[in-house]
Design a protein around this nucleic acid. Structure first.
Length: 425
RNA sequence: GGAGAGAUGGCCGAGCGGUUUAAGGCGCAGCACUGGAAAUGCUGUAUAGGGGCAACUCUAUCGAGGGUUCGAAUCCCUCUCUCUCCGCCA
């Protein structure tokens, strides 16, 4: 959420910032309403002050022996009544404006960071660095073919049980997924992350806090009979873990790692990535999430990205780091690095992690603060996938495939999987 | 799902229509005492928004929302959550 003070005092700066996202908007009306709201609040509180004084006076009179039915007291009561009505009128007007205003402000995305490269869409993203040697061999298979050959899953029965874009992993496939989750969690925990296993269903308030609502309701699955949604990412429960809290300085930075299943409708992506593990309605993800002091968030984005990269390095998967341009960053983010893993079968880089700094955008929506001396300030939040597990499995299959149909696993994973390769059974 | 009890500051806990400007305690911070500490004493100790150079001050907040009243932590209604018992259940 953008600071309302900024909307009042410098709406042009916001307009400029959001223009970089490709949004053309006029914040004039918002500015006017925000000011109007403040003026209403001021006159109401003055009126209330007057009303409070009358209330006290009546109490005093009665206590000191005045007749409650005396003309003097009746007059005060009448005046109190009038004030009450005036206050009610003002409150009504306030409510009208503030509800509208809040809805509009909640729909505004974060302002891109000044260091965020210019650009309209993914074509304008900047490659920042490469790691590893990408395999290039025309004969290499795509991961879904390898998974079929090794019977790692059952796609047809999955569609029977649920529908398309759901997967049932079997045998070595199921075990590999589990090994990856454990490996990732352990790796991050060794670096000082606190492990969290959050609820898979979250309420509307939580989705609003992290930025999925109100704009992206159609992206998530909603339970029909409850105010509950399937988590699209662990970022949602992790943000709300500290909603309406003041985190003591001594606890910052707070670094969480959470495994969670993630559920997304993937509306509008019909026909894309229909095969395999790349785009599913349900997938597993290990998520990194930081709460930091505002002055530390810049550095923290580099660190959280490095922590995500480390998973790829340990798994010996070649990747590149992309810095997203202002037109391509997500709703809540002000700056984002995507990690893209090399898929030699598909012969392309695919996003496997997205690491973002949200500054105080989510913290303001969720009212998460810290206290320094007498001053409270909003914390900054960062999130990064560490990593998307299904896509990691796809990368391991494609990068480790051998001519004889087996798949060699990265050394770091062997203790978790209990064997050094996948082979036909 | 049924029945009952409850929700008050960082924590415990009193208050059940008008000096509540939320008692008292614990915790925490500062000061005093001390060679240093303990103990003791004093002072301070919520959040948001507004006004003021500042000391300070105004408004709101006692789970949430509504109502009664000149005046609500206190009375009434609705909802949410927690606990206990019963039912069901991994």
């Amino acid at each position: 959420m953008i600071d309302q003070r900024l909307i009042r005092e410098n709406p042009k700066a916001i307009e400029e910032g959001l223009k970089r996202r490709g949004m053309k908007l006029d914040l004039g009306p918002l500015q006017v309403n925000s000011q109007k709201l403040r003026d209403l609040e001021e006159s109401r509180s003055k009126l209330q002050s007057k009303g409070n004084a009358i209330g006290k006076l009546v109490g005093q009179k009665i206590k000191t022996g005045s007749d409650p039915k005396s003309e003097e007291v009746s007059k005060l009561r009448l005046e109190g009544n009038q004030i009450k009505q005036e206050v009610a009128t003002l409150e009504e007007a306030e409510k009208n404006i503030s509800e509208k205003l809040k809805a509009q402000i909640l729909s505004l995305p974060n302002i891109p960071d000044s260091t965020c490269p210019d650009g309209k869409n993914e074509k304008d993203n900047k490659e920042r660095r490469y790691w590893g040697k990408p395999l290039n061999d025309i004969s290499l298979k795509e991961h879904w073919e390898i998974a079929n050959n090794l019977s790692l899953w059952d796609t047809e029965r999955s569609a029977k049980v649920s529908k398309s874009r759901f997967v049932t992993l079997l045998n070595q496939g199921a075990k590999l997924e589990r090994s990856l989750i454990n490996f990732m969690l352990d790796l991050h925990c060794q670096k000082g992350y606190l492990e969290v296993l959050p609820p898979a269903l979250v309420n509307s308030c939580s989705l609003t806090s992290s930025g999925q609502l109100p704009k992206f309701a159609e992206e998530s699955f909603k339970c029909a009979d409850d105010d509950l949604w399937l988590t699209p990412t662990a970022e949602v429960p992790l943000t709300s873990l500290h909603r309406d809290e003041i985190i003591p300085q001594s606890e910052l930075p707070l670094k969480y790692v959470a495994y969670s299943p993630c559920f997304r409708r993937e509306a509008g992506s019909y026909g894309r990535d229909t095969r395999g593990l790349i785009r599913l309605h349900q997938f597993n993800k290990v998520e990194l999430y930081w709460f930091v002091n505002p002055e530390d968030s810049k550095e923290a984005l580099e660190k959280i990205t490095n922590d995500a990269e480390d998973v790829l390095k340990k798994l010996e998967l070649p990747y590149r780091v992309i810095e997203l341009c202002a037109g391509d960053i997500g709703f809540s983010a002000c700056k984002t690095y995507d990690l893209e893993v090399w898929l030699p079968g598909a012969k392309s880089y695919r996003e496997i992690s997205s690491c973002s700094s949200c500054l105080d955008f989510q913290a303001r929506r969720s009212s998460i603060r810290t206290k320094k001396g007498k001053n409270t300030s909003l914390v900054h939040t960062l999130n990064g996938s560490g990593l998307a597990v299904g896509r990691t499995m796809a990368a391991i299959l494609e990068n480790g495939q051998q001519k004889d149909g087996t798949v060699n696993l990265p050394t770091a994973l062997i203790p978790y999987f209990g064997s050094s390769q996948l082979k036909p059974e």
